[in-house]
Amino acid sequence: MYPRPGAGHVPVLRLGDILLVTLQGDLYDSTAQQLQQDLSETIVSAGVTGVVIDISGVEIVDSFLGRVLAEIAAQASLLAARTVVAGMRPAVAITLVELGLTLPGLRTALDTQAAMALLEQPVVLSHAGGTRRERA
């Protein structure tokens, strides 16, 4: 029950100011390209500020998927939208790290709900460093 190459079309759902994309199973070159095109067009036409990519249904990952995610994030940020990848499975995360794809520019969340909450927050510039909690 694999989608035939070229036949797959990943739906892009709009929820207010956020676009929701759910990836499932294998992702083929043509599907990925179509998705990237759909996303950039929808971001511009709808004027959204955030994109959530739910990959909890992805069990097998390769460097291609990693690159697609990074590219989507990069093109979305060019269009002033933040991208959050949600629901990555432990095995997928380990594989990506072992492949050397730590995807540094990508925001991540535990699930779609957390991703929505993250996108509702105002833009924080210094994410990594954080502020050291001062003792009172």
Partner: peptide
């Protein structure tokens, strides 16, 4: 670093 990166990919 690997553990940290993997945890970050998962959203933690």
């Amino acid at each position: 670093m690997k553990t940290v990166a993997a945890a970050r990919l998962m959203g933690a």
